[in-house]
Amino acid sequence: MELSGTIMEKINSGRVYGEAQFNNLPPLRETYDLCYVLSYIGVLCPLAAGEAQYSVSKEFPPHVIPGNYTFTGTATDQMNNELFCLKGGCVITG
């Protein structure tokens, strides 16, 4: 996954709101600390204003259950301004 854009103001903190669904089961909804989530891809807060480009590639662990996965997510900054939204999915076979 690649993200790119312009950060208008320094980002000190924020939230990531995510929803994931497996097959047709009820969705799992969670809220995470933005800086904690970014640390998983090697990005540390604060984020400076200016042009930004990030690339993320992660493998699923071998114990993930095969099936259809969908996800959506939005992120907000410390002022509750929306930073980005994501929507995607995948099919895991095994």
Rank of each mutant, 00 (worst) to 15 (best):
E82Q: 15
G5S: 13
T93W: 07
E59H: 04
T72M: 09
E2S: 14
V37P: 11
N24A: 00
P62D: 04
E59L: 05
N68F: 14
E59W: 04
I92R: 05
F71C: 15
C90D: 01
T72G: 00
C45S: 03
D77T: 06
V64E: 04
Y54P: 02
D77R: 01
F71N: 15
I41T: 12
T6D: 09
E2W: 07
F71T: 15
E30C: 02
L38R: 08
L86Y: 11
M1R: 13
A49K: 07
V56Q: 15
V43H: 01
P66Q: 00
P46A: 11
I65E: 12
F60A: 11
T74P: 03
N81D: 08
V56G: 14
E82G: 04
S57A: 14
V43D: 06
S39A: 03
G88F: 09
T31W: 01
A75V: 10
M8T: 15
A75I: 13
P66I: 00
T93D: 11
A52S: 02
G89D: 07
G89N: 09
K10Y: 09
N68S: 14
G73K: 07
N12S: 10
P62W: 01
T72Y: 08
G50A: 12
T31V: 12
G89M: 11
G67T: 04
Y69G: 12
R15V: 01
V43M: 06
G67A: 04
A75C: 11
V16Y: 06
M8G: 01
F84D: 09
G14E: 14
N24P: 01
H63P: 13
A49Q: 06
P61N: 07
E30R: 06
M8E: 13
G94C: 08
S57H: 12
